[in-house]
């Protein structure tokens, strides 16, 4: 899809979800089995436990083009591995601060505890988050100086400029 085509269509956010295998991924399966219709914007990456969530995964998702990231784990006390979700919560809390300093709005990252039986909660969270991110619009990360240099080598810019000058003369 070219940029022109994209600009004609209304903005559809892309959201990456990291769901733990035992509670939230199962709940999403249950929502499917129960044919609960929800927004198609959230794409799920399965991890065994929300404790596996390396904060870098969230940053990578934003870098690669996600407009939002959702983390889903078992309710406190329910972790299949006893306490992985507590570590997820800690990392999430720190990560929020980091994202804020990067200028990424708070609503773009969300953590939800969803038990295996809560298919209806999956539906609600998927819809709510999609709407919240849709309202924020696409994620616009400020390009870093390094990226600009990579995209357009400084030497080339100079050459072009001088050539144009020559032509004008």
């Amino acid at each position: 899809m070219s940029d022109n085509e994209a600009s004609k269509e209304p903005f559809e956010p892309k959201i990456v979800a990291f769901f733990c295998n035992w509670c939230t991924y199962t709940a999403a399966d249950l929502a499917g089995t129960a044919r609960m219709v929800y927004a198609p914007n959230i794409r799920v990456v399965r991890i065994m436990c929300s404790g596996r969530l390396d904060p870098q995964f969230v940053l990578a998702a934003f870098r690669d083009g996600a407009d939002g990231v959702l983390i889903g784990g078992c309710h406190p006390g329910d972790c299949h591995y006893q306490e992985g979700n507590y570590y997820a919560l800690r990392r999430f809390t720190l990560l929020k601060k980091l994202l804020k300093s990067m200028g990424i709005e708070e609503a773009r990252l969300r953590l939800e505890w969803i038990a295996a039986s809560e298919g209806d909660k999956v539906k609600k969270v998927m819809n709510d988050m999609t709407e919240a991110v849709r309202e924020l619009g696409p994620l616009r990360l400020e390009p870093r100086a390094y990226d600009l240099i990579q995209a357009q080598p400084a030497a080339e810019i100079e050459v072009t400029t001088s050539a144009q000058e020559v032509h004008h003369e």
């Binding site: 990456v16 990456v45 991890i47 065994m48 436990c49 404790g51 596996r52 969530l53 390396d54 904060p55 870098q56 995964f57 990578a60 998702a61 690669d64 996600a66 299949h80 591995y81 306490e83 992985g84 570590y87 990392r91």
Partner: peptide, 28 residues
């Protein structure tokens, strides 16, 4: 569970079927 893998500051711990690289690629 992979909790230790996410906590390892040097990337020395990895999880079979869920290595950092595999997940980064999945995200991409």
């Amino acid at each position: 569970c992979g909790t230790c893998v996410a906590a390892c500051p040097s990337g020395a711990l990895q999880q079979n079927l869920f290595t950092d690289e595999q997940i980064f690629h999945e995200i991409k």
